[in-house]
Simulated assay, not measured.
Amino acid sequence: MVKPQIVVRLPPDLLEKLNKYAQQSGTSKTDVVIGALAQYLECAEALSLNQKISQQEARVATVEALVKIS
């Protein structure tokens, strides 16, 4: 299935945070944005299983990074 593509302009600081989060969590920026939009729009059930797993992996990576800092 071909997914539509959109273009979004982000402030530099937000793009930097997106890049850092994607790198730390080992997921793509696309999956981070899809997960964030789905959660914000309250339609997380629309996510594919791969996206749900990716989102959970990103959350675990964030928690692990926070635990290492503490």
Rank of each mutant, 00 (worst) to 15 (best):
K17F: 11
T27A: 15
E64P: 04
L10R: 07
D31C: 14
A22L: 05
V8K: 06
Q5S: 13
S70L: 10
R59Y: 13
P12W: 01
K20N: 14
E64K: 11
L15W: 02
K3S: 15
N19R: 08
P4Y: 10
G35H: 00
L41K: 05
E45T: 06
R59Q: 15
S54A: 03
L49E: 13
G26S: 04
G35C: 01
V2C: 12
M1S: 08
A22G: 13
N19T: 07
R59L: 14
E57G: 13
K20C: 10
S48Q: 04
K17D: 15
L10E: 12
T62C: 09
I53K: 02
G26F: 03
S28A: 13
D31W: 00
Y21T: 15
Q55N: 13
S70C: 11
Q56K: 11
L49I: 00
V2L: 13
D13S: 13
L41D: 06
S48I: 02
A65V: 08
A58G: 09
V60Y: 01
M1G: 11
A22W: 00
V32Q: 03
V33N: 05
Q56N: 14
K17P: 09
S70K: 10
A61P: 02
S70M: 09
Y21L: 15
E42N: 11
L41F: 02
A36H: 00
A46L: 01
A61C: 03
V7M: 12
E42R: 02
L14K: 02
S48W: 00
I6S: 12
A65N: 09
A22V: 06
L41C: 03
R9I: 05
V33L: 09
Q39A: 14
D31Q: 10
A38Q: 05
A61N: 03
L41Y: 02
V67S: 08
